[in-house]
Simulated assay, not measured.
Amino acid sequence: MTETNTTTPTPFEQHAGRGRFNASFFHVMGPYLERSLRDHKSRVFAGLPAEVVELGSGVGANLRYLPHGATLVAVEPNRAMHGRLRDAARRQGVRLDLRERTAESTGLADGSVDTVISSLVLCSVHDPDAALAEVRRILRPGGTFRFVEHVAAEEGTPTRAAQRLFRRPWGWTFEGCSCERDLEGTVRAAGFAAVEVERYRLHTPFLPFNTQIAGTATA
């Protein structure tokens, strides 16, 4: 895939302890989270093409949605995830093009991509507005950004109270993850030609995480 030098890499703190913890956490908890999210992911990620860019590929939870033999351009700054991601790509028969960069500065060329995906990623990027501007920059006209993300709950609800209560320990543990972002509003304000969003709720012990959106934004 064509690269460009028009964006400067956004700094990412490689924290040895938290990085390894998150790689292990998502490896162990991946099957449980996948059961909770499968129906929404299956709808949003249906019919993915033979080449896909993913923001924050982690340990490879979404590889199963790519066709066998596809290429995944994985934008994943956390080195602790890379080993498990490579292993998962081999098992799934997906060619991995791994980029140690951030969502705000992928390094890919303008208008060079048909499809970008993310799941549980925009909650933790340093600058969601910049990340979505980068998605728009690299997408071809008519290309799609497909996403499954967790978002802030409605004001006055127990879930919103829990999100506030656990804000700091949650963010520290999960490397900047925030449960208080209005990501639907952020996507809608990002300048896409069309945005379709489904709101839903999970029922898991991870209460701050349970308010979710899934959808598609078209460039």
Score class of each variant (00 low, 15 high):
104 E>K: 08
207 L>W: 04
210 N>Y: 01
196 E>M: 09
127 D>S: 11
92 Q>D: 05
79 R>S: 01
27 H>E: 10
46 A>H: 09
92 Q>V: 01
122 L>I: 09
53 V>S: 03
21 F>L: 08
70 A>I: 09
130 A>N: 05
159 T>N: 05
64 R>E: 06
122 L>D: 01
124 S>N: 11
42 S>C: 05
116 V>M: 01
213 I>P: 09
107 G>A: 08
9 P>I: 02
120 L>T: 07
187 V>D: 08
176 G>F: 08
196 E>W: 07
36 S>K: 10
100 E>P: 00
113 V>Y: 02
97 D>T: 03
52 V>P: 00
155 E>Q: 14
40 H>L: 07
183 L>A: 03
80 A>T: 03
136 R>F: 06
154 E>Y: 05
83 G>V: 05
7 T>L: 08
188 R>Y: 01
11 P>E: 12
77 P>M: 03
82 H>P: 03
215 G>D: 04
26 F>P: 02
73 V>I: 13
82 H>T: 00
18 R>E: 11
155 E>K: 12
209 F>D: 13
111 G>M: 06
163 Q>V: 07
17 G>R: 15
98 L>H: 08
136 R>G: 14
160 R>Y: 10
205 P>C: 05
23 A>K: 00
169 P>T: 12
156 G>T: 01
50 A>W: 02
154 E>K: 12
65 Y>H: 15
2 T>G: 01
66 L>K: 01
31 P>H: 05
14 Q>R: 14
83 G>P: 00
69 G>D: 10
196 E>S: 15
70 A>D: 12
19 G>A: 05
73 V>W: 00
133 A>F: 03
155 E>R: 14
61 A>N: 14
184 E>C: 07
212 Q>D: 13
123 C>L: 08
85 L>N: 02
81 M>E: 03
63 L>M: 12
169 P>I: 12
41 K>M: 03
141 P>N: 15
202 L>G: 03
11 P>V: 08
38 R>A: 14
129 D>E: 15
146 R>A: 06
174 F>L: 12
165 L>R: 13
134 E>C: 09
65 Y>R: 03
136 R>V: 11
98 L>P: 08
110 D>Y: 07
51 E>Y: 00
213 I>T: 11
21 F>Q: 06
188 R>E: 03
47 G>T: 09
178 S>A: 04
219 A>W: 04
208 P>D: 00
89 A>H: 10
173 T>Q: 13
73 V>Y: 00
16 A>W: 12
185 G>N: 11
197 V>G: 09
19 G>W: 04
177 C>L: 05
165 L>M: 10
50 A>T: 11
56 G>Y: 08
12 F>G: 00
122 L>G: 04
2 T>H: 09
41 K>N: 06
9 P>N: 08
142 G>I: 14
165 L>H: 08
150 H>D: 00
143 G>R: 12
102 T>L: 11
126 H>I: 10
133 A>C: 10
193 A>G: 14
33 L>R: 12
41 K>A: 04
158 P>S: 10
84 R>V: 04
151 V>T: 15
203 H>V: 13
98 L>T: 07
166 F>W: 13
114 D>N: 07
167 R>N: 12
151 V>S: 13
76 E>P: 09
154 E>G: 09
130 A>L: 13
46 A>F: 01
